[in-house]
Simulated assay, not measured.
Amino acid sequence: MTVALMLGAIHTLHASGFEDRTLSSSTITVTSRSDSGAGSLRQALLTAQAGDTIRFDPVVFPPSNPMTITILSALPQITQDHLTIDASNAGVILDGFNAPAGTTGLYVTSDNNVIKGLQIVRFKGDGIGLAYGASGNQIGGDWQVGEALRGEGNILTLNGEDGIDISGADSMNNRVTGNLIGLDSNGTLDLRFQVVAPSPAFAQDRLVFAGSQLHGVWRSTDGGMHWQTSNAGLSILNVMALAFSPNFASDRTLFAGTGDGGIFRTTTAGELVPRGSGYPQAAYHGTGSLTRLWD
């Protein structure tokens, strides 16, 4: 059996010719950032038939300022063949932080579908899963085509398991192209944060620290609106725990526990301070081979 695409319709072609079934091709536009209800992505997935295209209203989801759909439960599986989900000219973030454990962002169990232009983040399972013989699907596309941050490519990061998981020996001939997996929108950082620690005096100083898996400690002085790395002297960048001194307001001491048994300490609240010579002094200091202290 082969498949022919003709004039907006999809026909299944057998050796004896076209069968009677013709799948119409419709466009469904997502106009709501809600998890469910009229105009939502969830409703579009429930409504879509084989051959349809789901797009996103760029007024509601502007490419220059991506908007978030907070997913509260697993979205409907993509069981239709030839379904296209196209966010390449919009700014769409599917955020799975509030979904149950193990939830996958989009789960495909059918053939010849296309998923492009989405940001899929913080699901506890995979970003996109293909299984049960899902074949001939395309995940992503040309990252230079479209107005989304990655064009037709998808951005999949901060998910609990794989960015894209293709499982089963009978899931074949799937194409993954143009995506950023485990990276931010400019392709440089894996922003997989493991711990966030607001200052004990957060209401007054607006100071927040975050520990990441690959890029050390990040520091914000405006309540989390803007962030900078704070890693001078931190020789292990897999930061798994952060703890403030009981007297942080006066001693400015913060501890970080890292992978490989590291313990680091800063007495400047993670801030570079000038030496007498004018050169900056490292914020963090370490000694020893297994247990490391910042000073």
Rank of each mutant, 00 (worst) to 15 (best):
T84K: 12
D184S: 03
A131D: 14
G257F: 07
P200A: 08
I93G: 06
R175C: 01
A131M: 06
A243C: 09
W294Y: 12
T68Q: 11
G233Q: 03
H82V: 04
G153L: 10
N154G: 09
L45H: 00
G187K: 10
R192D: 15
R55H: 00
F264A: 11
T258Q: 08
A169W: 10
I181T: 06
L106G: 05
W294F: 12
F193V: 11
S167Q: 14
G223T: 07
T53N: 08
M172E: 13
D52N: 15
S32Y: 00
G178Y: 10
G146P: 07
V121D: 01
D205V: 05
A44M: 02
N137F: 09
R265H: 07
A197D: 00
T157Q: 10
Q213V: 02
L207N: 02
G288D: 08
L191E: 11
G39E: 06
Q194D: 13
L180G: 03
G160P: 06
E147T: 14
R33C: 08
G129W: 02
Q194E: 15
R42I: 04
G96A: 04
H82F: 15
I263L: 15
Q49I: 07
G288Y: 05
F18P: 06
G133M: 07
L189Y: 15
D170H: 10
D20V: 10
Q204N: 13
P246D: 10
S171I: 02
P100M: 08
M6V: 13
N179R: 00
V59C: 01
P274K: 11
G262F: 07
H14L: 11
R206H: 15
D295K: 11
P200F: 09
G261N: 15
R175Y: 04
L149D: 10
S135W: 01
G133N: 05
S110G: 05
R21F: 00
A232K: 11
L5Q: 03
G278F: 04
H11P: 00
I115S: 02
